[in-house]
């Protein structure tokens, strides 16, 4: 009889057994749109979340009816722009310091996001608009080479605002500074910095200016929702719960961007 006493808790066992959770399915929408001040809105990308068990990327949603509304309530329907999942409206000219909202209905759910298009970075200046470098044609030139001074890029940073810098050689076929070791097909300088609240950037001329010609320096002002994408995004479980998006009922980024530019020349000595 005693042995049957142990069956009593066994009954509890069956009561306590539960079905384990099964993976949920997902069919959600992602938005990617950068609203450049002074440009028309011609690239709002929509695509579906890649399901965990997908063996290939899901089809693009080409049957959406998205609408962008400006802060005055003016609505701009977006149409497919010829590329799958890419919508736009050439009549919508993005203006600085204005607010825009996008809305789209997907599976009876309204997906929306709002952003503010920031003003241009102000008082963009260079420490030097023309620099001279001696082209290196043989080893004697290397021995005689002087370290060039760096170029300081400065602008007026507003408190709490974020900026990044793009430096780009805009020549078609410029000569390389180091002709001795010049390689075919080498890419022209075109680099960007990560967003920060700094008000300056120093170009390391020796390392970063590898070709002669005209360079465009463009300073972008971006919003916090964009900066969040740059923060440490560990792929482990600890970071999985943190969804960095400003899209309601969806995913992705809908953000305004503004920029200003300035140029400098690199000439042969």
């Amino acid at each position: 009889m005693k042995k049957y006493l142990f069956l009593i808790p066994a009954l509890w066992l069956f009561w306590a057994c539960e079905e384990e959770a099964t993976p949920q399915t997902i069919d959600e929408l992602t938005v990617e749109a950068f609203l450049y001040a002074g440009q028309t809105l011609d690239s709002v990308k929509f695509w579906k979340i890649i399901p965990f068990d997908a063996t290939e990327a899901p089809a693009y949603p080409n049957d959406l009816v998205p609408v962008v509304v400006d802060e005055n309530g003016q609505a701009y329907p977006l149409q497919l722009m010829g590329e799958e999942g890419v919508y736009g409206n050439s009549d919508l000219l993005i203006e600085a310091e204005k607010t825009y909202t996008i809305e789209v209905i997907y599976h009876d759910k309204t997906i929306s996001a709002s952003t503010y298009v920031p003003g241009q970075p102000l008082r963009l200046e260079l420490s030097d608009s023309t620099i001279y470098r001696k082209q290196i044609n043989d080893f004697t030139d290397i021995q005689d080479m002087q370290i060039p001074d760096p170029i300081e890029i400065t602008w007026q940073a507003e408190a709490g605002a974020y900026y990044f810098v793009q430096v780009k050689n805009i020549e078609n076929d410029p000569d390389a500074v180091n002709a001795l070791f010049e390689e075919e097909g080498i890419e022209l300088p075109d680099f960007l910095t990560e967003p920060s609240s700094n008000s300056y950037y120093t170009i390391n001329v020796f390392r970063e200016i590898t070709h002669f010609g005209t360079y465009e320096v463009r300073v972008y002002r971006v919003n916090p929702e964009y900066v969040a994408l740059y923060e440490d995004n560990s792929s482990g479980a600890g970071a999985l719960n943190e969804i960095r998006t400003n899209v309601q009922n969806g995913y992705g980024i809908f953000t305004g961007v503004n920029s200003t530019r300035i140029y400098f020349e690199v000439k042969k000595l």
């Binding site: 992602t30 890649i50 965990f52 994408l229 995004n233 992705g252 980024i253």
Partner: peptide, 20 residues
């Protein structure tokens, strides 16, 4: 449950996840 990739302005991309 799923993932998406966002292109950044510098040409890089970042991966993000929609979770259970």
């Amino acid at each position: 449950l799923g993932a998406y990739t966002v292109a950044l302005l510098d040409g890089n991309t970042t991966d993000h996840f929609a979770v259970s």
